[in-house]
Design a protein around this nucleic acid. Structure first.
Length: 246
DNA sequence: TGCCATGTTAAACT
DNA sequence: GAGTTTAACATGGC
């Protein structure tokens, strides 16, 4: 579920089913003020990075699926204890499980910077570049996961992007040549769209070149798995093909 | 079977 | 108070 493209898919499925519809009942164990949602109409459904946003007239329901979140439509498929939020409409019921639910008051456009979302048509590569320049000492494996810079990028996308541009995960931002920095920013977006396409085709895993893989598809040597940086997430990489600039 | 993970937050530490 | 580490969430794949 969790990386940005998966949220886009959920948005595309849910949006046409509930946009313009009124919330007739709210339940679940989410720690939110449910009364606030009662009888409100869904204005639109959006995604920002890994956030699913159900936008109402005066507030927004923000769903974050974390690591194990899921949802279902019309039938409750999980036990009550994991049912965070149930939204009932006249003909539809949407269930969200094991996720983080928050109500964001006010205008959504003043809360989210759509230009930071790698999957948004408003994505702004130049702005991302400026943010990178301000973080010269950060490792590239950390900054790719930074949702302020690359909203929607998760650990799989991180690994695949770095492999694609032949850059070592432990490289400092300040050491990356300008041309490689450009491809980093471009591929963070491009790979996310490839991820989206493959996920829709149910062929995502088949297309992984490095994530959870054992051997480099380019040189055939064994891939390494290490935990780098502040984020300490798994990095799969080829020590031979991915360059660590200094 | 048991471990680990596509993620984030907040509490508990140093 | 800053920075770092751990726990919590609770499921599913290998």
């Amino acid at each position: 579920m969790p990386e940005g493209p998966s949220i886009v898919i959920i948005k595309e499925i849910i949006s046409p089913q509930i946009t313009g519809k009124k919330i007739l009942n709210v339940s679940g164990n989410a720690k939110i003020d449910m009364a606030q949602l009662f009888n409100k109409k869904v204005d639109r459904v959006e995604s920002w990075g890994k956030h699913l946003l159900i936008i109402l007239s005066d507030c927004t329901i923000r769903i974050h699926f974390l690591m194990f979140g899921s949802y279902s439509i019309d039938e409750q498929t999980k036990p009550d204890k994991s049912l965070r939020l149930k939204l009932e409409f006249s003909k539809k019921r949407i269930y969200f499980y094991t996720c983080s639910v928050k109500i964001l008051p006010g205008d959504i456009d003043s809360i989210y910077d759509w230009q930071a979302d790698v999957l948004s048509e408003k994505w702004n590569a130049a702005k991302a570049r400026k943010k990178l320049k301000q973080r010269p000492d950060d490792l590239v494996c950390d900054i790719l996961l930074d949702q302020e810079v690359f909203a929607g990028v998760g650990n799989i996308i991180k690994n695949e992007v770095l492999y694609r541009i032949k850059l070592h995960p432990e490289t400092r931002i300040s050491s990356i040549p300008p041309r490689i920095l450009s491809s980093l920013i471009n591929e963070a977006r491009n790979y996310s769209f490839d991820f989206l396409k493959w996920k829709k085709e149910f062929t995502l895993k088949k297309h992984w070149l490095v994530h959870t893989k054992k051997f480099c598809s380019s040189c055939g040597r064994p891939l390494l798995k290490k935990y780098f940086g502040k984020t300490k997430r798994r990095s799969f990489f080829c020590d031979n093909c991915q360059i660590k600039y200094k």
